[in-house]
Design a protein around this nucleic acid. Structure first.
Lengths: 344, 344
DNA sequence: GCCGCCGACTAAACCGCTTTAGGTTTGAAC
DNA sequence: GTTCAAACCTAAAGCGGTTTAGTCGGCGGC
């Protein structure tokens, strides 16, 4: 059962009766090979079942044929956020079909985020990275640029960036949620936001404030770290207030679920006493009781677009900035007419 | 801002006044280098800020310094299962500190599972893979072996396997849940199981049946695909039955949450009318109302152990079979005394 | 009929590291 | 004072591709 070593281009060359160099030309579709010879070479290659040795190719071309995704230090972030899985699936949709591979690096307690990028770049593990969860004044932009990596950002950074970006107007999603609630007669609507240091957290929060203002409402905003625990805590505070809100717009589904738990625990009926909206349209949301009204973004499409943009960059395309379709609001059972304000 | 090319061992050799070969020996802690020379070489390397070029090393050693995790075809599987994130974090804990990298491959519609393994191996992308979600008669064992990859399995396969394994006795977790419920007086306990084609699904199901039998109960089992949707459907069927169960043991938290939704929708109070247990002890579970009683396995530790076992295999250690600590039952609010059977 | 040019192809260098086969000291043994 | 082995080190040959410099033959132009 001795594994015979896989054929190399030298074997192909021998079989086709040409030199190694010419084989390389033929296999890479480069000009300067007679049509007949090219055919012979390709035939020899397929006869032998030749497949390129990526390691060798990597060494001579200086490319890794791999892209990286670094997940921030808190594993809970990824564990809690189904968004990531859809994103990853989208990235893979594109990478898999173009011979790239996805390197997933989790910043661990022993190796912080910056070090992770450094090691990825230092070891020339990846040709580029996908930057998610952009932060205010995000240092990763400069870091990654300094490391000589290509990159694509999910959303547009607030600092100078040489990288392509793929954005979703999640603000529009929040806006829809607010409009939906206002239409149902809610006058006191609160927002349980993500951290203001995260660009998308801030963007959603801003969208909330401005659309609330447009509807003539006073915006009530509580910032959290996006975790279920803080979502629950924020909800407790909001509902304990004297003049408690009749609707809460959460910045993600997990917090909405936790908030729902808190409300029920306090004896409030959803949506009769309190309306709730989530963000991400998690699978779980539709199975809750009441089923969760949520803003749906197409994370997988986002991943696909980001991967494609990164590949384009790697093959020399100029910087681009893509905007994807606006998110939609999926109305289910967790939102209803404001109390004392039957739908007219 | 021209990036000066990173130093190579040739630069180090020149600076230390020795040959390339000796530098390689010194840097790899191999015998045959005079202590003084070794010191000089290491000094030269650190002066120059030399760092090994993994691509070159890969080519000459034939190793990738990367391990792979292939996620089955359904992206929902990963999206739905927080288990994966903890697992991945655990894998990374070990890989990151040993210069390995994790390649995550998602089998996409255009590239099925087997093809994914084939391409990973064909491109020599990884040195080994982690096999999760073992199935009955799992063909991946033979496939991976045939591809010449190293591997470690999560749990012990039911087919001949040359690979090391790391197991958790999840059956014991289910057993604890059943005992807990039996102690609370429940006599009709149902199990919403995973697919019987998945080894851990089957194992949990078996554990349920046997421990129910030991408690003198008739085991009621409904198989699902582990998804929230099927968990909800199974629950509906169980609760519609004439002689409906007073407690349901779910094979994962997601189905338990969905089941909770169904029960509430039917007007049943949990735990007064129906007790519910989950599996995985998801973060979300503790924020629900009622908070979910669940079996907690340490997925991260599992990942760490698996990664270590794989690295051991790669460095020539013999096959090993590790058993981790038994899972525990975290009792919260979703379980209570059986109806008409006050705790005594 | 000679020159020059172009297309097709070969030979060899190169990417940066590992590893093997030798070569040179050194020093102890006889 | 040889002899030999051990210790230390060098040179060079890989690993399997890509790429560059250059060779060769044939053809058109004058």
């Amino acid at each position: 059962m001795a594994q015979t070593p896989p054929p190399t281009i030298a074997d192909v060359a021998r079989r086709a009766g040409v030199s190694k160099g010419l084989v390389s030309f033929a296999l890479n579709d480069r000009p300067g090979v007679a049509p007949d010879t090219r055919r012979r070479i390709l035939e020899a290659a397929s006869d032998l079942g030749w497949t390129p040795n990526l390691r060798a190719r990597s060494l001579s071309t200086g490319r890794s044929f791999a892209c990286g995704l670094v997940v921030g230090r808190s594993t809970d972030v990824i564990a809690a956020d189904p968004f990531f899985h859809s994103l990853i699936a989208g990235l893979e949709d594109v990478f898999a079909t173009s011979g790239q591979v996805l390197v997933l690096a989790v910043a661990t307690p022993g190796r912080q985020e910056a070090a992770t990028y450094r090691s990825l770049a230092g070891d020339r593990r990846v040709d580029g990275v996908v930057l998610t969860d952009l932060r205010a004044g995000d240092e990763r932009i400069a870091l990654v640029q300094g490391l000589g990596l290509a990159a694509v950002t999910l959303g547009r950074p607030d600092v100078d960036s040489p990288f392509s970006s793929v954005s979703v107007d999640d603000g529009a999603g929040i806006r829809r949620a607010v409009e939906h609630l206002a239409r149902l007669g809610h006058r006191r609507i609160a927002h349980v936001a993500g951290p203001s240091t995260m660009l998308h957290g801030q963007r959603r929060s801003d969208a909330f404030s401005s659309s609330a203002a447009e509807a003539g409402l006073e915006p009530i905003v509580v910032a959290t770290d996006f975790s279920a625990a803080e979502g629950a805590e924020a909800t407790r505070r909001l509902l304990a207030a004297e003049d408690r809100p009749t609707a809460i717009v959460y910045s993600n589904d997990h917090m909405a679920v936790a908030g729902l738990g808190v409300a029920q625990r306090l004896g409030l009926r959803v949506p009769d006493d309190l309306s709730i909206t989530g963000f991400d349209d998690t699978d779980l949301g539709r199975h809750l009781h009441p089923a969760l009204t949520s803003v749906a973004t197409d994370a997988r499409a986002w991943g696909r677009a980001a991967a494609q943009a990164l590949l384009d960059t790697l093959s020399g395309a100029p910087e681009s900035h893509i905007h994807l379709a606006e998110p939609t609001l999926v109305v289910r059972e967790s939102t209803g007419p404001a109390p004392d304000h039957p739908r007219g």
